[in-house]
């Protein structure tokens, strides 16, 4: 076994070299123009995308397959997270407080945050915003409610929670497949409906993203249920 300081030294040198090489590469790359001008191509096709904001257009139209899989990744994390929680309810009674100041604050903040989430979702069409930002704010509202001890009975690993986790993803998927059945390519929106479909997808995605994030927050597991494992130290 190598001494600790030798390892530290080697790792330091490795990281410094890597950062240096990286900086040199970035410098070298920055000196030349790119052969493909993707932003121009994007702006030429913007009018066919159904939304006014280019980032939203890329996320939900040009590269919607990325977004579909990305929501899949989020759902996986949610599933794996709640699979760790082996209690009937994800609620933690210890967190219930009766702090009047916190309670008063929540009465102001929770509705305000929900309105903000709605605005972020709506704004996504023409300026920065969109499903993920809105979902994150809704999830944060949930976190605030939980920390403040407001009971949230829907957060048990039952059918409702699982429906919520999968809802946004399934709607996205149904739209993708419906477009294929309609004769277009997989994930191609039928012309004329693009805008409406993107709004629908964004709304349900907001809900599901919030559910996943909140489920991950509350599924911190604290009980002793066990499963025998194989192959490990017997």
């Amino acid at each position: 076994m190598m001494a600790g300081w030798v390892r530290t030294l080697i790792t330091t040198l490795l990281c410094l070299t890597l950062s240096g090489a990286l900086a040199a590469s970035i410098w070298a790359i920055a000196g030349n123009p790119t052969p493909v001008d993707l932003p121009r191509l994007l702006s030429e096709n913007m009018d066919r995308s159904g939304v006014a904001h280019p980032v939203t257009a890329v996320l939900l139209n040009f590269r919607s397959y990325d977004t579909l899989l990305e929501i899949g990744v989020l759902v996986i994390a949610g599933i794996a997270g709640i699979s760790m929680a082996k209690t009937a309810s994800l609620e933690d009674p210890e967190l219930r407080t009766s702090d009047t100041l916190l309670y008063a604050l929540q009465r102001w903040f929770v509705p305000l945050m929900l309105v903000l989430a709605g605005y972020l979702l709506w704004a996504g069409a023409e300026r920065p915003g969109g499903a993920f930002q809105a979902g994150a704010v809704v999830a944060a509202t949930g976190v605030l409610m939980r920390l403040g001890g407001i009971p949230m009975d829907f957060l048990r690993p039952g059918l409702l929670l699982r429906l919520g986790l999968g809802l946004g993803f399934s709607v996205f998927l149904v739209v993708a497949v419906a477009s294929a059945i309609g004769g277009e390519a997989f994930l191609a929106y039928p012309p004329g409906l693009t805008k409406a479909l993107i709004v629908v997808i964004e709304s349900v995605l907001t809900l599901s993203i919030a559910m996943v994030l909140l489920a991950l927050f509350v599924s911190a597991p604290v009980n002793d249920a066990e499963d025998p494992e194989e192959g490990g130290p017997a």
Binding site: G166, F169, L173
Partner: peptide, 20 residues
């Protein structure tokens, strides 16, 4: 087209179905 849609769509759809 159908084969491609089937190939990409089925595992994702079945992931949601079996979640329920």
């Amino acid at each position: 087209l159908w084969l491609m849609a089937g190939l990409l769509f089925t595992p994702l759809a079945w992931a949601v179905l079996t979640l329920l």
